[in-house]
Design a binder for these strands. Sequence first.
RNA 1: GCGCCUCUAGCUCAAUUGGCAGAGCAUCGGACUCUUAAUCCGCAGGUUCCGGGUUCAAGUCCCGGGGGGCGUACCA
Length: 467
Amino acid sequence: MAEIPYRFVTDSRVEELIAHHADLEAGQETDNVVTIAGRLMLRRVQGKLAFATLDDGSGRIQLFAPSKTTPEFDKFCDLNLGDWVGVTGVVMTTRRGELSVRVDSWVLLAEARRPFPDKWHGITDVDTRYRQRYVDLWVTPEARQTFLMRSRMMSLTRSFMEHRGFIEVETPIFHPIPGGANAQPFTTHHNALDLDLYLRVAPELYLKRLTVAGFDKVFEIGRVFRNEGLSTRHNPEFTMLELYQAYADYDDIMNLVEELVEHLALELTGSTVLMVGDRELDVARPWRRATMIELIEESIGVTLSLEMSIDELRAVAVEHGVPFKDSFGSGKLILEIYEKTTESALWGPVYVTEYPAEVSPLAREHRNKPGMTERFEAILAGRELCNAFSELVDPDQQRSRFEDQAAQNAGGDAEAMMVDEDYLRALEYGLPPTGGLGIGMDRLAMLLTGATSIRDVVLFPTLRPER
RNA sequence: GCGCCUCUAGCUCAAUUGGCAGAGCAUCGGACUCUUAAUCCGCAGGUUCCGGGUUCAAGUCCCGGGGGGCGUACCA
């Protein structure tokens, strides 16, 4: 029985070995002795000479094992695909010119007791790929690439924010009152406090409390939870970037978002032109900015306004097959008409600006247009990427918006907000003019990697349990 | 939630009209000192997602259930 060591120290990564020996000619042996470790992906035993392919996560390199010099040659030949091994030996090339590490000593680091998937076809069954991601990531190079890109995206985003003077904070995930978005929350319970709690649907209200506290540029990157349906664009837990910048308005935030996305595209793909499915999306600045009213007009040729009577708006809805409830006010009707007739046709990048206050309970009223707010969403590749606004800073107006929401909640709308008295108290201490933003980082990762399903950018997507 | 599609060996896939469940890879045994998805010979590997039904006979047809995908609804 082989002894599995507790520790194994490598001195090289395959990626580096390949880069440093690019011009080594066939049949050469260097005096460079290296130690590497990884997983056995292929094996070609030829009697008294064996070849194997080792993958250490950074790349693949051939192992060259002649019976004369390889310790325990027979056992080496008995290794299974998927086994982890550590190898020390000289860097060399074979007669055919394949860069290799000669196996001067080796040790088994882990045994693969289960057979690995077909070495050529890998796994195609998406169910298995999502459920057994630990296998998928080894055998599906595109999956590995996607998650490496996602990791770099998060890291680049953090440094982008920090270079602009933002500080990263962490706010509660357990909320006694869910808030910051219209979404159904998950519920849980704390035993010692005998307290019902909600998993947050957004960090928004806590972050603005921090702006009140004098942190003038804050951001948080964290998981939020929404108890709603699953789709190629929705996972019940997903990662949100939210930021709040004091003294800024929604125009400043639009500038920031397009700078961030352009920067990430260039760093990660080298181009501002992204491929989404078989369609291109150019995220180069500046992005188009158009109001919701303008976009609806382009789409259906009708200029809506909050001054129109509710009957006029309902008539437009009926004419275009947009369902509505009697409880909908003018603002909600306009939003519904936009979503059903216009939004799905947008490709972007485009900023959709000026949302009705009725459907924007945390956004500040437009400086020139009563009943509208200084809010925008960005549409990229036909998907909503972010939601942002000049923040509502007036505690009295906020209370009245909360009360409208609470009435809808009481009326059966499980996604409507509740009154958050502590948040109102915070506003009473003074929230300066502030621009705020929320970006779905999973959707951003989809854009940058070209993924068509959110499950392809979430390591362990929510699934029903097996059996 | 609704509609359509799908589920066969560890993996990738076959199986004619309803007629003995098969192949490649992996695993196991054997041969081979420059291979590249190595090759060659051999063994083994199955609750055909589950449960009913029709039939002389069901992987195949019918009904019910389950997993998954896509669409739709919901979801800023």
